[in-house]
C-alpha cells in the first residue's frame, strides 16, 4: 500500500515529505529506542514513534523506512520538518494511538 493511500484513508496529516508519498508501506514497526529501531526496523516499514526531535529523520533515512508516523496529535518540531524535507523523509501525524494505527494497517493488509 502506498503511503499516500494510507494517509488519505485515515485522514493523516503530512508533516513532511509531500513528494515522497509514493513509497510503499510493506510493514509496521513500533519502538521509541532509536538504536533498537536502527537494528530491527526493516526497509519499507511505517515506523511509529512518539519522538519528534531531529534524530527521527536521521534514523528514518538510515533504516529506509517508508514513513514515520507520529501518533496522538503530538506536535512535530519545525527543525525536524525542515530536516525531513531535506532528506526526503515522510512524517505523518494522526490522532490515533500506536495500537490503533497498527490495527488500521492490519485491516488494510499491510505486512500480510
Amino acid at each position: 500500500m502506498k503511503v499516500l493511500e494510507f494517509a488519505e484513508k485515515f485522514g493523516m496529516k503530512v508533516w513532511a515529505g509531500e513528494n515522497k508519498l509514493q513509497n510503499d508501506i510493506t510493514g509496521v514497526y513500533v519502538c521509541d529506542l532509536l538504536s533498537w529501531v536502527m537494528s530491527h526496523a526493516s526497509k519499507g516499514d511505517a515506523w511509529i514513534t512518539v519522538h519528534t526531535n531531529l534524530n527521527i529523520a536521521a534514523v528514518a533515512l538510515l533504516t529506509e523506512v517508508a514513513c514515520v508516523i507520529v501518533p496522538e496529535n503530538i506536535n512535530v518540531e519545525p527543525e525536524t520538518i525542515t530536516r525531513a524535507e531535506n532528506e526526503g523523509i515522510v512524517i505523518l501525524g494522526t490522532d490515533l494511538n500506536s495500537y490503533e494505527i497498527c490495527c488500521r494497517a492490519y485491516e488494510c493488509g499491510v505486512g500480510k
Binding site: 532509536l34 533498537w36 537494528s39
Partner: peptide, 15 residues
C-alpha cells in the same frame, strides 16, 4: 528522553 540509551549502539556496530 530523546530516544537514546538502549545500550544497543556498540552491539549494532559489531553486527
Amino acid at each position: 528522553d530523546m530516544g537514546f540509551g538502549a545500550g544497543m549502539g556498540l552491539p549494532n556496530m559489531k553486527r
